[in-house]
């Protein structure tokens, strides 16, 4: 029943849209497995095997999240326990079931806690992507699977960092799709990952403080992604952020 209701709303994106702003469908797209040379510092030079997985085409939008809280009252603003979502949870929305003028339908939903993002994906029979999955997908440009050594591509990512975040968000899918068909992995919002809090386990050796950051020759290529790791590591699971959204993933290779 609940699934049917969700499906119905998902099939009628125009109805949920504010200001006639159409919300494009958000299918799960296949990303083939690969060996990833991760940007995680101290990960070493050994490539990490990543199994095939599926990732949603764009970050979850206000319209999509509205459908979710409509079907799941306990995730509405005001109903969620503070332990699961901070007081600024969906605070940019006009009401618990009304995104309002400042949160158009096709914009990524932000100010969503990790718990809420997990719950959303669970309702989609999905999960949040792991960091390595996200990183693998985000390494792709419109033309190649690993564009991280391309200075022009890197600079495009950095241009987003180079402007203050006070302005309004753009709608999803304003960029060119990557080789996987995915949109907005850069240049729009930060995104939660499932293992955001274990990218940097506590109890590290302080002697490595400077060496690990400054002497890592790869950092030049990777620092755009490093900043994402830094952002994720500064968060707790109930936190939200004005520029922090998410998208869901599923195991791939036909095992859905």
């Amino acid at each position: 029943m609940r699934r049917a209701a969700l499906l119905l709303i998902a099939l009628l994106p125009g109805l949920a849209a504010a200001g006639g702003d159409l919300n494009p469908p958000n299918p799960f797209l296949e990303v083939p497995g690969a060996k990833l040379r991760s940007a995680l510092p101290l990960a070493g030079d050994e490539a990490v095997p990543v199994q095939p997985f599926q990732l949603q085409r764009h970050p979850v939008t206000n319209a999509e999240f509205l459908a979710f809280v409509t079907a799941h009252p306990r995730w509405r603003r005001g109903a969620v326990p503070a332990a699961l979502a901070g007081e600024d949870y969906l605070s940019q929305w006009a009401g618990p079931l009304d995104p309002g003028a400042h949160a158009p339908a096709a914009q990524p939903v932000t100010r969503v806690s990790w718990f809420a993002a997990e719950a959303y994906c669970d309702a989609e029979h999905a999960r949040l992507p792991d960091w390595y999955e996200w990183e693998l997908a985000a390494a792709a440009s419109p033309t190649v699977r690993d564009a991280r050594a391309d200075p022009a591509w890197r600079q495009q990512i950095l241009d987003w960092y180079a402007h203050p975040g006070g302005k309004g968000l753009a709608a999803v899918e304003g960029d060119s799709a990557s080789v996987y068909g995915l949109h907005d992995l850069h240049g729009l919002v930060w995104e939660w990952v499932r293992d955001f809090n274990s990218l940097l386990p506590p109890g590290a050796d302080p002697e490595k403080f400077c060496g690990a950051t400054a002497l890592n020759a790869r950092q030049k290529e990777d620092y755009a992604v490093l900043m994402r790791i830094a952002l994720l590591s500064s968060l707790r699971a109930a936190d939200t952020g004005r520029l922090l959204g998410f998208r869901c993933a599923r195991d791939g290779g036909g095992a859905s």
Partner: peptide
């Protein structure tokens, strides 16, 4: 739980602070 804590990485790189070592 479904959150694999497989990482063996260190927190240290994140904060490069002078005089960090303290006995």
């Amino acid at each position: 739980m479904k959150h694999p804590m497989r990482s063996t990485l260190a927190v240290a790189w994140l904060l490069c602070a002078a005089g960090a070592a303290s006995a």
